[in-house]
Computed example of a mutant assay.
Amino acid sequence: MKAAQDIILTPVITERSVDDMAESKYTFKVAKDANKVEIAKAAEELFQVQVLKVNTVNCTGHTKRMGRSVGKRPDFKKAVITINPEPTPDKDGKKRKGTIEFFDGMF
């Protein structure tokens, strides 16, 4: 199994993803070969939250032109992770968080 840092790559910051944060939904770019179970375990390990649901989208890269040359941006996979907003204790006795701290200071 891959490390959690290799599965969840970068956060996606758009108007829609910022609006979804009020509903405890966070959007990330993830590894193209990762499945929903691996993404959920990686999010729980990295951010100490309880994941309720994971939705994934395979996105195709945009075609870009510069003069006569045509190129294509790389394809990527995006995951919308829904977390439990109430902090709950884990089975190990550790306290789970209700938000992802990375996004708290941004907005």
Rank of each mutant, 00 (worst) to 15 (best):
L46V: 03
L52S: 14
R73H: 00
A40P: 05
K41R: 15
V57P: 00
H62F: 04
S69N: 15
K64L: 15
N55K: 04
S69F: 08
Q48D: 13
K77S: 03
C59V: 05
N58Q: 10
H62E: 15
H62T: 08
V51K: 04
E44C: 09
L52H: 09
L46G: 08
K72F: 01
T82M: 10
N58S: 08
T60G: 02
K41C: 01
N55S: 05
E45D: 15
P74K: 05
Q50A: 11
L46H: 04
N55R: 07
K77M: 07
A43I: 10
A40L: 06
K72C: 00
T82R: 08
R65T: 12
Q50V: 08
T63S: 02
K41H: 08
H62Y: 06
F47D: 13
T56C: 03
I81R: 08
F76K: 05
I81T: 09
V49M: 06
V51Y: 06
G67E: 11
R65L: 12
M66I: 06
T60M: 09
A43G: 14
V54S: 09
G71K: 02
C59N: 04
N58W: 01
K77Y: 00
L46K: 01
A43D: 13
R68H: 10
N55A: 10
R73T: 01
R65G: 13
A40Q: 13
E44R: 11
G61L: 01
N58C: 00
K64G: 02
E44D: 13
F47C: 10
L52K: 14
A42S: 15
D75H: 01
C59Q: 05
R73E: 06
N55W: 03
R65S: 14
V54M: 07
M66P: 02
K41F: 06
L52M: 07
L52P: 09
E45I: 08
K64N: 08
L52G: 12
R65M: 13
K41D: 11
V70R: 04
V54D: 12
K64Q: 13
Q48C: 08
G61Y: 03
L46T: 06
M66H: 11
R68A: 13
G71Y: 02
P74G: 02
P74M: 00
A79V: 06
V51G: 07
F47W: 10
K78T: 08
L52D: 14
K78E: 15
L46D: 05
E44K: 14
F76D: 07
R68C: 06
R73Q: 05
V80T: 12
P74H: 04
M66Y: 07
A42L: 12
V51I: 09
V57M: 12
E45A: 14
K53N: 15
V54L: 03
L52C: 09
P74N: 02
E44A: 11
G61C: 03
R73S: 06
L46P: 04
F47I: 04
I81Y: 11
T63E: 06
R73W: 02
V49K: 04
K53L: 09
T60A: 08
L52V: 14
A42V: 13
R68I: 11
I81M: 07
F76R: 03
G71E: 02
G71Q: 01
I81P: 10
K64V: 15
